[in-house]
Amino acid sequence: MNALKNPKNGRHFAKMACAFALLGVFLCVSCGNKKVNVAAALKKGIHEASSLMVAVPGKSYSILATEVTQELYKSVMGENPSGFDGEKNLPVECLSWYDAVMFCNRLSEKEKLEPVYSVDGETDVEEWGYSPHKAAEFKPEIKWRKNANGYRLPTVEEWQYAAKGGQNYKYSGSNDLDKVGWYGEIEGLVAIGKTHPVAQKAPNSYGLYDMSGNVWEWCWDSYSHCKRYNCGGGWNSYAVDCEVGYRNDYFAYYGDVNLGFRIVRSSSKK
């Protein structure tokens, strides 16, 4: 991730200056036979992911309409590791890829679904011997149980297909990044911005918000044995990082204030 140092928190951020045009939240969005009232769900508070899952047309999976919020994460994990807080519906961040995988299994268990990920055949994350947010590599192999019906991270292909929304825009939902994404929040060499509540910009045609900008989103795919891909760019990224065809890679144990995730579920699974 392109980065500059922010003296306030010692983290590193990307350089890109821009102006922002605030847009209202769409009251509801539809996708095939699935209709999601995003505004109502956010106002109520997201504690069940199923209320915001959108079926992807022509594909056998559904995807969360927004990035995983701090409220949803805390309702499942009992804690919030984010560097930014104080506002409702902020995306959760400061998460490693391992943390995101653990969340998926915990959420699946909460909603009485079959967890997707396992270590040595064990799906109970309490038995994995992993301590969240420790910035350390987890040696055991995490496997994807493809017949399980629970929540998981999208593949890069799934993420990019959903982000395109059946259109040919450079960014998710528009060729004008200011309309659909938060990005480039720095002044000179100092990062001055932060994450923003989800679904404040316009969605793409599938009704998915913030797939360009706000926070990078972890994907399942590996770049190497210790690195995983993430997509979408963040609030402090260059515009090119927010293009739907762009992907980045980072160490799976890494977490930062511009790195979060969203979840998918294979819709053919019952």
Score class of each variant (00 low, 15 high):
Leu189Tyr: 06
Val76Tyr: 15
Leu95Val: 15
Leu259Ser: 07
Val54Gly: 02
Glu48Met: 06
Val92Asn: 06
Lys59Trp: 02
His47Ala: 08
Val68Asp: 03
Glu141Gly: 09
Gly173Ser: 04
Gly58Pro: 12
Arg152Gln: 03
Ala65Tyr: 15
Asn175Asp: 14
Ala135Asp: 10
Thr69Lys: 07
Lys74Arg: 15
Glu111Met: 15
Trp144Ser: 01
Cys242Val: 05
Ile263Leu: 14
Trp216Gly: 03
His12Cys: 03
Met211Cys: 12
Asn175Pro: 09
Gly121Thr: 09
Lys8Asp: 08
Trp218Ser: 02
Lys110His: 06
Ser174Ala: 09
Arg145Pro: 00
Asn105Trp: 03
Tyr171Gln: 01
Cys104Ile: 08
Phe20His: 06
Leu153Gly: 01
Glu127Asp: 13
Phe26Ile: 06
Lys44Trp: 13
Leu52Lys: 08
Tyr254Leu: 12
Ser50Gly: 02
Glu71Asn: 07
Asn80Cys: 11
Ser205Asn: 11
Val240Ile: 11
His133Arg: 15
Asn204Met: 02
Ile263Tyr: 12
Val54Ser: 12
Asn236Thr: 00
Glu243Ile: 08
Asp85Gln: 09
Cys104Arg: 00
Asn105Phe: 09
Glu137Phe: 01
Gly24Ser: 14
Ala49His: 01
Leu4Asn: 12
Gly233His: 07
Arg145Glu: 07
Tyr169Ala: 06
Val190Leu: 12
Leu107Gln: 15
Asn230Glu: 11
Glu48Cys: 14
Pro154Asn: 11
Lys164Arg: 13
Asn147Gly: 07
Ala3Trp: 01
Gly173Ile: 04
Glu158Phe: 03
Pro140Arg: 10
Gly10His: 01
Ile186Met: 02
Ala55Phe: 00
Ala135Met: 12
Asn2Leu: 05
Tyr254Asp: 13
Asn105Leu: 07
Cys18Phe: 01
Lys8His: 08
Glu158Tyr: 11
Pro115Asp: 08
Ile63Ala: 03
Asp210Met: 00
Ala39Gln: 10
Tyr98Gly: 03
Tyr246Ser: 06
Gly255Tyr: 14
Lys35Cys: 15
Val92Trp: 06
Ala239Gly: 05
Phe13His: 14
Ser267Glu: 12
Tyr238Ile: 15
Phe20Ser: 15
Met16Pro: 00
Lys59Cys: 07
Leu113Asp: 02
Ala3Glu: 08
Gly83Gln: 04
Ala252Arg: 09
Asp178Pro: 02
Val92Gln: 06
Gly213Gln: 09
Asn33Ala: 09
Leu95Tyr: 01
Gly184Glu: 06
Glu126Tyr: 03
Gln160Asp: 07
Leu113Gly: 05
Ile142Gly: 11
Asn149Thr: 04
Lys227Phe: 05
Ala40Val: 00
Cys18Gln: 14
Ile46Val: 15
Met77Val: 01
Trp235Cys: 02
Leu64Asn: 11
Glu137Ser: 05
